[in-house]
Simulated scan of single mutants.
Amino acid sequence: MSVSFISRIATPKKALSTAAVAAATVGMALSAAPAHAATATGSAADAKTIAHQMIPDAAQFNAFSRIVEHESGWNIHATNASSGAYGLVQALPASKMSTAGADWKTNPKTQIKWGLDYMNSRYGSPAKAWNFWQANGWY
């Protein structure tokens, strides 16, 4: 066999090998991304922005944010495998959030509205819900 024939065979193999390594690297990087980063609007930051717009009082927003961070990491699809609690605020049963809107499974605004209503009706405010959470590890 001539050297040029071997070069023509080796070069495509090298190119395929390089492409495979690159694809595997991208795949590993994508799979390493935290699950809580994704929401229907694109990111946890988007969900936080929506919450901040809905809860303009800084102290109440911070309390709400702390609860959501602990409960779901701002993942609107967070699901507790043992209890079935779902969403940003881990509603149980999850279907309770339907009272805030039919899109409760995918819309952070709907989940935030339900969670805020829940915290206000059960505890009086997100800050009081956070105080309870700190004392009990749940709310």
Score class of each variant (00 low, 15 high):
residue 70 H to K: 14
residue 32 A to K: 11
residue 124 G to C: 13
residue 17 S to Y: 05
residue 68 V to D: 00
residue 59 A to M: 03
residue 30 L to N: 10
residue 129 A to L: 12
residue 44 A to Q: 08
residue 11 T to D: 03
residue 52 H to M: 15
residue 112 I to P: 02
residue 84 G to R: 06
residue 134 Q to N: 07
residue 51 A to V: 04
residue 20 A to N: 01
residue 133 W to E: 09
residue 66 R to T: 02
residue 116 L to I: 06
residue 114 W to K: 03
residue 102 A to W: 11
residue 103 D to G: 04
residue 8 R to H: 15
residue 42 G to V: 02
residue 12 P to A: 05
residue 103 D to E: 02
residue 135 A to H: 09
residue 22 A to T: 11
residue 86 Y to H: 11
residue 93 P to L: 13
residue 12 P to D: 02
residue 18 T to R: 10
residue 95 S to K: 07
residue 50 I to G: 02
residue 25 T to Y: 02
residue 33 A to M: 10
residue 115 G to H: 07
residue 34 P to I: 04
residue 90 Q to D: 14
residue 16 L to E: 06
residue 40 A to V: 00
residue 75 N to L: 06
residue 94 A to C: 05
residue 19 A to M: 10
residue 56 P to D: 12
residue 4 S to T: 15
residue 86 Y to M: 05
residue 73 G to N: 05
residue 37 A to I: 14
residue 32 A to V: 01
residue 82 S to G: 03
residue 131 N to G: 11
residue 66 R to C: 12
residue 47 A to Y: 01
residue 103 D to L: 05
residue 95 S to Y: 03
residue 52 H to A: 11
residue 139 Y to P: 00
residue 21 V to W: 15
residue 67 I to F: 13
residue 21 V to P: 04
residue 45 A to I: 13
residue 16 L to R: 06
residue 85 A to P: 07
residue 136 N to Y: 02
residue 74 W to K: 07
residue 133 W to L: 02
residue 67 I to K: 08
residue 124 G to R: 10
residue 21 V to Y: 12
residue 73 G to E: 04
residue 38 A to W: 13
residue 2 S to A: 10
residue 65 S to G: 02
residue 83 S to I: 09
residue 99 T to L: 11
residue 110 T to C: 06
residue 10 A to M: 15
residue 35 A to Y: 12
residue 48 K to A: 08
residue 82 S to E: 14
residue 53 Q to W: 03
residue 41 T to S: 04
residue 6 I to W: 08
residue 26 V to A: 10
residue 82 S to Y: 07
residue 114 W to V: 03
residue 132 F to A: 09
residue 121 S to P: 01
residue 54 M to K: 15
residue 21 V to T: 09
residue 127 A to G: 02
residue 32 A to S: 14
residue 117 D to E: 15
residue 40 A to Q: 15
residue 12 P to F: 14
residue 137 G to E: 04
residue 127 A to E: 08
